[in-house]
Amino acid sequence: MCTAFVSIEPSSAVPVLLLSVRDEYAGRRWSPPDHHWPAQQSVLGGLDLAAGGTWLAVEPGGPGRAPAAACLLNGFGTMAPAGARLSRGELPLTAVRDGGIAHLDLERYDPFHLVLAGPAGARVLSWGGSRAAEHELPSGLSIVLNDGLEGMAADRTTSELVRSLMAARAAHFRARFEGAARPAPLGGTGRTGRTAEAWGAWLPIVSGDGLALDDPAALIQRREFGDGRIWGSSSVSLLAFGPAGVRYDFGPAPVAGQSGPAGPAGPPADGWRRVV
């Protein structure tokens, strides 16, 4: 149940905020954000060691390049033909390189939702296996779930349990984020390296808000399916876009039974690391 929260306030010094929670089966190995792709040397993101792609790619920007990010969530619908299927993990990399994925043959990918964000705003592209839909996100807080933008994709889960868990998570955290002071992670104290100073009142919420791992609304979660399979949150990414560029903070979400990151040493004691 990956979830992305996008806050857009055009009049703010930091108009676009993106918070992404990655949920995955325990045992699927990954490496923390770094420059993992030689063909796209400026791009940062976590590396999925199973397929070589990523769930979130960040282009920091530079001369001739605007900062951008692309965040991937799995969707529901018709799966791609086995013989022609391509990994969805390449989609965020393509999106930040080319400014989108309109030129791709989407029939070769399993269903997904792709959030594309930058200083000017954000949009969501949803693919359910037979049709694509794209939405520009409005001002305010938007939530993207595995059932799509605000859970309203044309192709949605048939599981009442999964639907209820997504709805509970969205309702709880919408109220919490909207009730807290919106941070400005690229201005004032946000220029420092400390994630807590940059993200202010939002950081305790992003870190789980004190909910138990098995709470129906849990953002940081752990679910056991009774057959040895464990599903849980593996990481949280925080991004802020403004005239000064992009800020990217990353934190693993260590849940009992999760494999955790592979590769470089882990983050500092508070669990958060500023990537850029």
Score class of each variant (00 low, 15 high):
S234R: 15
G193R: 04
S235G: 02
R223K: 12
A201I: 11
I230P: 04
D227I: 13
P204A: 02
A201Q: 15
L219G: 02
R222N: 02
L213Q: 14
R222H: 04
S237E: 12
W231T: 06
R229P: 06
A218P: 09
G200I: 02
L219D: 04
G228C: 05
R223Y: 07
E224S: 14
R222G: 06
G232T: 14
L239Q: 08
S207H: 03
A212G: 09
L203A: 00
W231V: 09
V236K: 00
S234L: 12
I220K: 10
I220P: 11
G193Y: 02
G200E: 03
A198P: 07
G210P: 11
L219S: 04
D215Q: 06
I205C: 02
T195C: 06
W199H: 08
G232M: 14
T195P: 04
F225Y: 14
V206S: 03
G210E: 09
I230L: 11
S233M: 03
G226C: 04
A198V: 06
G228K: 07
G193E: 08
I230D: 05
S233N: 05
L203H: 00
G226T: 06
G232R: 01
S237F: 04
R223E: 13
D215S: 12
S237V: 10
V236R: 00
V236S: 02
A198I: 07
A218S: 11
P216R: 03
L213Y: 12
D209S: 14
G232K: 03
A198R: 06
D214M: 10
G200W: 00
I230E: 07
W202Y: 12
A218V: 09
R223D: 10
G200N: 06
R194I: 05
G208F: 04
L213G: 08
W231M: 12
